[in-house]
Design a protein around this nucleic acid. Structure first.
Lengths: 210, 210, 210, 210
DNA sequence: TATGAATGAGGCTTCATTCAT
DNA sequence: CATGAATGAAGCCTCATTCAT
């Protein structure tokens, strides 16, 4: 069994209980969607019976809500942390934003897919709360871009469109990126940083495209 | 009844039969997804009984397949037509691509949402065919960008990333655009054209942001 | 099959649809109670699948509500009709009340059992409505007894207790009466009429105990 | 905590273990019926977990059986004790029967409701044993009434109907009596004694209706 | 074509019961 | 004794699909 012996200190134990269910649900729901996934699908993948799932969550909907809430909270938190460590320069701040956005969505590709496609399956009031957090996240980008424009570092007349497009394109990587593909995650970050700077009319970087 | 009298020559008659079903299905499935939508939901919205739907389509899956196939074919066709009329200049060609991409997704916002989120619900072999068409569509963008780079009109070292990001961001408008919002469709086109040019390192345009 | 041939003109056709379901539900629920009866139990007894039941009723609860509402309405209606035909004499009126009460509960023993034991399973607001009708029914008895007392025909100082006890004892016959038992329904009516008159201190009748 | 300190010598300690479970089960089952009550409902109300309940009873059915058996035994025993203390006079004996019957059902209204409505949920062979005890109880009334008739103290020609009706009406008080209502238990006893005597054609009492 | 009843599978959830801790 | 996680059966209900009318 996975994680049975103590031989490999780096091996994570197979998740149990709540964690196993959430992980299974992310995997299955990302593939088939909320309505296309049955509680049995989730439970089977998590290694327990359908009924047992209800010892950890009150409903299938609560499973989705938990996934969505944790996901957006983690993204917001990591984004804020990145900004805190990025200093004052708008270029550095935008690059930090793109980096964390790309890395986050790559590490949690399936969660991201869920987050974008299953918003409609989220019931109120969780849905409204979730949308508010997404708007917060967008505003973090808006503020950096606006600040750069104000200080003359970014030259675009399309601050808000650029800001939204950057978020959209960074989120979009989750839909097509493959870890076994042509580019590594780090390379992708570098390229999208450059792309983002181009979109806001920032200074052209030295060659950093890996 | 809607569209009964011929008084208003611009009023489209209420669609019937197949057309009514497809229109209803797009509306309902865009909101709740394929698996979140029942045949009854579609039929009710189309104004007939669930059983009657089966006189027009063999299955719910066939309804989805029809929507998806028609959608991607129309997009490809309109894209090709736009390119045919755009002349030889890479800038004009890219602008034409962005224009048709944006306008198409705005005119059929719900169909676009379906196309991106319900690919997973499409069964083989339709799914593979659909993916091939999407790749064709992407390659039309890739070719224009690559051509521009080759001819020195576009300066980006990230041709393929930019090309994909342009498609992603244009498709993305369907998810947030509101006809009653700040920008008209035409203004949006102008701004996304400029944004796209910035992404590929094209020549900065005169001010055209509306 | 029941009702297949036209040979017996008195044979009622096997009920179908709604009627079959209600009849089946009364039978099964009277035996096992609302919560002890599954939708499948009802459907099987009615000769259809569990799913088909939902073409006729929105829920199991609606089946119960229909049974209960029809039952109490029929009882009230028959009671009022009986009073209308009973003339002015309190003795005749009380006898009419007892007669209809007994006959009704004998003809629909299982429905009566449901009505008394499954009130608790009835959800609001149907439950409150049902209780109001039951109170109306009781008041019809109360009025006859009070009138008899006022006019000196009944001698009891316990009008309201007697009135309630009469209703309780008449309703109670549904719980123990057997058509194959010692007494016929008509005999039972005669005896309970005499008993009721005794309870209100009415005039002793000639011998009418069958 | 309830009953924690010994300060109030009249306060009963909160029941624990078996007693708590039985008390909880009576309360919950009287309201929702056997099948409408889950083991969890009982356990929660008794203040323990569902699993713990199985340290005290082998099954939900055993809980019901225990309640029903203890109830009918107590009623029979108290009835016999009352008869033993009532002397030889049929009037006194019938009054004693009614008194104990009413008081018992008032003290244990919910248990009585269970006893009448959940007989059907009782499995064999407990059910048959229970019915036998109920018949015994009825026969105690039958015997007193028959004796009174034989000795010319009661004048009714409907001995067995009256006897059954008396039991039914006395049991029925559990369904409607409210301690906060118009009548006290003692008053109710007096009135039902008078009513019972009227039913058997016994001698009219002095006024004792409280 | 259209309907509405029917079906059998499957959906989410609850249940009585067991058992390791 | 008590807990809480687990299970397999079952409960209510919805679904996609079929078919007689």
């Amino acid at each position: 069994m996975a994680g049975a012996a103590g031989s490999d200190p780096t091996a994570r134990p197979a998740p149990v209980g709540e964690a196993a269910i959430l992980q299974a649900a992310i995997a299955v729901m990302a593939e088939h969607g909320y309505h296309g996934t049955s509680v049995r699908d989730i439970a089977e993948r998590a290694g327990l019976s359908a009924g047992a799932l209800y010892h950890h969550f009150a409903s299938k909907q609560e499973v989705l809500a938990t996934i969505m809430e944790r996901g957006i909270k983690a993204l917001l938190s990591r984004t804020r942390t990145a900004l805190d460590g990025a200093g004052d320069d708008p270029v550095a701040r935008l690059r930090a934003l793109v980096e964390v956005q790309i890395l986050f969505h790559l590490q949690d590709q399936r969660g991201t897919l869920l987050g974008t496609s299953e918003l409609r399956a989220l019931e109120e009031p969780v849905r409204t709360r979730h949308l508010a957090k997404r708007a917060q996240q967008q505003r973090l980008f808006d503020a950096v871009v606006a600040d750069g424009v104000e200080r003359g570092v970014f030259a675009t007349p399309l601050a808000s469109e650029a800001s939204r497009a950057i978020v959209v394109m960074c989120t979009g990587v989750a839909a097509w990126f493959s870890p076994s593909g042509r580019l590594s995650g780090r390379q992708l970050v570098a390229r999208y940083q450059r792309l983002a700077l181009a979109m806001v009319g920032g200074p052209a970087p030295e060659d950093d495209t890996g």
